[in-house]
Write a protein that binds this DNA or RNA. Structure first.
Lengths: 349, 349
DNA sequence: ATAAGTTCCGTAAACGTTTACGTAAATAAA
DNA sequence: TTTATTTACGTAAACGTTTACGGAACTTAT
């Protein structure tokens, strides 16, 4: 059941292929009568142009690529939502690539995308990536790139991020104000600028409060969640003075909960926790988790908008188009200063 | 900075375009010496074949499409993960389309996919969809389709699902055994076979326990989460006898938690809750949520495998290839029979 | 020596569009 | 009337691959 093409339409209508094509594209030099005839038949036969022939000829793929570390993470899910929304409204298609934080995969994907498969790219880099030649290469090939969240700072293009320094600062200060003296920072890879910025915020808040920065109170994410939990437990046992945790990654906040549970530490009685998170159910956790929430949907949407602006105007993207959106601190029970107030009101009334 | 193509390589090497193409594709009728020369230059210049030209000529897109209701849902996120994994290992690309449960969007996407843009399709249908002519149309056009989770039963193709009847039965029986007498079912749209099957399991479990099935104790999801919460609250107030909730959708379990919280009902003291969910943090909720957990990653992976088998063998997919994977009942505190045991051990020791 | 077979490569057509260019017919201007 | 302009369409080339076909040049068999 071969799909029908222009040639078949043309035969049927006793017109040339060119005329049919122009009629369907609503060109000025085709009579209204012919256009109507052509469209009627096209509709009747459910004609749909072959996208590859079209892309080849026009040198436009009508497709963008999204490169992200993972999709089973609420932040990226929401971002994709925003991206897909904008793409659809521009009649674009969305190819998705998951790096799983693996630099090698990111590299392989860059190769695949180098030959016009996509008209543009939205990228959140893998935490392993330290070298960015592969992305520079894509730029040289003329593929516009917009970074979101996990950006490659040095590339002169637009980046859509959140106020990571301020967020790290706010989170840490919030813990300090809740009475924490020794705060564990579960940090994002320092390869990534968001990792460095959140760390700087953490350090600055400590300094402003006259607290020392202790290198031993910083941990990076491991390969698996189970490793994270163990790592946190070990640190909590080695440093019993720790009374606060600032998780820069959503999953690390959850790992902290598990570690505390395993060790019998109460939250927020013994340890207060704040975490970057986009989970709607943070409020339903035991105890409800205080979060720094990023506007994930908006980040995806705005990044996509910038990309489509560049694609449609056929212009190079300027770093000045970069956007910094604000994260929101949502205070919940996991950082309540007074332990006796920590019990949520509705359990076992 | 135009990407280089076969013609440029051929010029540089003083060979014909055909020879270069065949060398790169490792054909038998090209000498090893020539292959080496060609590959060396191709590597040096970072040649990457134009996918659209290749697709057009070969009539193969090396791309599959994934059509799902949403991505901000842990089940689908995990499924995509499995799908992407299989696709990548087959050197395929993944186009993603979100229907947002909207039949019109699903229809529009079917149109777009009708002309060879994808070699195959993995579909989880929108709950609004009652008519499936658009999917039949794609089949007629020769595009193999594998359904996963939300299937269109009548189409003679493979479907990868979970044991929905048994899951509904197990969930309901579990609540009954925990002492529930009046169980509210937050159901999936009865347009969908998974909705009907889970419902049948619910009804059968009630019958086997000698309990009546009450139509008034069944609710369907609304447009927004807020509407769901309100709807549940209203029902709980109108039916104070309800002492158990079976949520067939992840988000509905969360809405139930909120509703109970708003009404001051304790879980599991006043009301016990069980829900379909793929959230890893179900165990960290307050109280920990008893779940029916679907093997989402495997579902995606197996569905993709079936699709690629069909694509590579160029064969039509048979309904006999369908797979039914087992869901798992994970018992946690939200359905504990004895109210006094409901308090998790680690809060405020 | 010629015939037959093999090896290696080139020519050209094809995939289904889009578009630069050309042109016949119809209309308007002179 | 002739000339210029407009309208509406066809011809053919192009996008970058892949591949059927053919044929030199070389090797082996006779």
């Amino acid at each position: 059941m071969k799909p029908i093409n222009l040639k078949k339409l043309a035969q049927e209508l006793d017109l040339s292929v060119a005329t049919v094509s122009r009629a369907l594209n609503d060109r000025y030099d085709i009579s209204q009568a012919t256009k109507d005839r052509v469209r009627a038949l096209a509709n009747k036969l459910n004609y749909e142009p072959n996208p590859y022939a079209s892309s080849l000829r026009r040198q436009k793929s009508k497709t963008i690529g999204v490169v992200i570390p993972e999709v089973a993470n609420h932040f990226f899910s929401l971002a994709i939502n925003g991206i897909e929304e904008v793409a659809r409204s521009n009649n674009y298609h969305v190819l998705i690539y998951l790096t799983h934080e693996d630099y090698q995969r990111e590299l392989a994907m860059a190769r695949l995308l180098a030959s016009g498969r996509v008209d543009g790219l939205l990228v959140s880099v893998a935490s392993e990536s330290a070298d960015f030649a592969h992305l520079e290469f894509l730029r040289e090939r003329g593929i516009p790139i917009v970074f979101f969240d996990r950006v490659y700072d040095e590339m002169p293009t637009a980046k859509v991020t959140t106020d990571d320094f301020e967020s790290g600062y706010k989170a840490t200060r919030h813990l300090l104000e809740a009475g924490c003296r020794h705060i564990l920072h579960l940090a994002v890879s320092q390869n990534l600028s968001i990792g460095r910025r959140r760390m700087e915020g953490y350090v600055q808040a400590l300094a402003d409060a006259g607290r020392p920065y202790e290198e031993s109170l910083v941990l990076l994410a491991r390969e698996t969640k189970q490793q994270d939990v163990i790592q946190i437990q070990q640190l909590l046992e080695a440093h019993p003075e720790v009374d606060g945790i600032f998780a820069s990654v959503e999953s690390q906040a959850m790992s902290s909960y598990e570690a505390c549970r395993n060790l019998g530490r109460s939250i927020p009685g013994d340890i207060k926790i704040i975490g970057f998170s986009n989970l709607e159910i943070a409020a339903l956790l035991d105890p409800p988790l205080t979060t720094i929430t990023q506007p994930a949907y908006s980040i995806g949407k705005e990044a996509a908008k910038i990309l489509f602006l560049a694609i449609s105007k056929n212009r190079v993207i300027s770093p000045t188009q970069s956007l910094v959106l604000k994260s929101e601190l949502v205070v919940r029970a996991s950082t309540l200063p007074a332990p006796q107030a920590a019990r949520p009101a509705y359990t076992l009334t």
